[in-house]
C-alpha cells in the first residue's frame, strides 16, 4: 500500500478545476426533477451496479411510480413541532422569569418586582416561540424522503443540511412509533435501524399512519429482497 497526496504542491490548477465544477449545480438531488422527466431521469440515478443485475426495487416488485419520487411529510407535522417548541418556550420563559425575580430580590443588577420578571420571561418566551415556529416551517420545507431503487434517501435540515443514504441491505428492522401528541394529530414516525451507530438518525417523522405502515412494509420487502438480489 502506498499513500500519496494528489494535490500536494501544484495545487493551483486542481483548485481551479474543483472550484469550477462546484459552480455547476453539482449537488442535484436525486429524484428532485423526476416529477417532470419520470423514468428517463431514473436511469441517471441508478447506481453503476444496476448494469450487473436488476435493482433491488425491481426484484421486490415495487412500482416504478413509487420509486424516485420525492415525498414530503404531512403538513400537520408543523403543528406537532410548533407545539413541542412552544412547550419548550414556556419552560424557558418561566426559568428566565424566575431568575430575573431572584436577581431583582438579591442584587441591584435588575430592578426588583414582578413586572420586570414578567417582561423578561415573556420576552424570552416570545423570542423562543417565534424561533420555534420559523424553524418548524423551514424544517418542514426542507424535509424530503425518496424510496430509490437500492436505497432510502433522506434530506432535511435548517441550519445544517443533512442527506442520508440507507442501502436496503443494511436495514436490520423498521419501527413505526406514535407518541400521544402524534396520535392526537394523526401522525406516525418511522424509524429505520441499521447495525451502524447512526440508527437514530434514520427517522422519518410526520407520516400519516397509513403511509407509515405502507412505507414500513415496502421497506421490509426491499430489505428482504436486497439480501436475495445480491446473492444472485
Amino acid at each position: 500500500m502506498t499513500v500519496s497526496d494528489r494535490n500536494d504542491e501544484r495545487v493551483a490548477d486542481d483548485e481551479r478545476s474543483t472550484a469550477e465544477t462546484a459552480s455547476t449545480p453539482g449537488d442535484r438531488e436525486p429524484g428532485a426533477d423526476d416529477d417532470r422527466e419520470g423514468k428517463s431521469q431514473q436511469d441517471d440515478h441508478q447506481e453503476p451496479t444496476s448494469q450487473e443485475s436488476a435493482s433491488v426495487a425491481a426484484a421486490a416488485g415495487i412500482d416504478d411510480d413509487v420509486l424516485d419520487t420525492p415525498r414530503e411529510l404531512a403538513s400537520i407535522v408543523r403543528l406537532q413541532w410548533i407545539i413541542r417548541s412552544t412547550v419548550g418556550a414556556v419552560v424557558l420563559g418561566a426559568i428566565v422569569a424566575g431568575i430575573t425575580l431572584a436577581l431583582g430580590v438579591a442584587t441591584d443588577v435588575v430592578p426588583a418586582g414582578r413586572s420586570t420578571a414578567v417582561t423578561a420571561g415573556g420576552g424570552a418566551f416570545l423570542l423562543s416561540a417565534i424561533y420555534g415556529v420559523l424553524k418548524a416551517v423551514l424544517l418542514y420545507r426542507s424535509w424530503e424522503y425518496v424510496v430509490r431503487a437500492d436505497s432510502l434517501y433522506l434530506r432535511r435540515g435548517v441550519f445544517t443540511h443533512v442527506r442520508t443514504v440507507v442501502p436496503y441491505v443494511r436495514v436490520q428492522h423498521i419501527d413505526t412509533t406514535r407518541s400521544p401528541l402524534e396520535r392526537l394529530l394523526g401522525l406516525s414516525t418511522l424509524v429505520v435501524y441499521t447495525a451502524g451507530s447512526r440508527g437514530a438518525d434514520v427517522t422519518i417523522p410526520g407520516l400519516t399512519p397509513e403511509r407509515a405502515s405502507t412505507l414500513q412494509t415496502r421497506l421490509e420487502r426491499l430489505a428482504i429482497e436486497s439480501e436475495e438480489a445480491d446473492a444472485v
Binding site: A22, R28, E47, P48, V165
Partner: peptide
C-alpha cells in the same frame, strides 16, 4: 469516530455519498 471526509466540495460530497453506497452493492455482489 466514524470515517469522515470533512469539507469536501459540495458536488464531490454528493458523488462520494452515492458512490460509497453503490460500491457497497457491487462489492457485496
Amino acid at each position: 469516530n466514524d470515517a469522515k471526509a470533512v469539507d469536501v466540495d459540495e458536488a464531490t460530497a454528493a458523488e462520494l455519498r452515492e458512490a460509497v453506497t453503490a460500491n457497497l452493492y457491487s462489492s457485496l455482489r
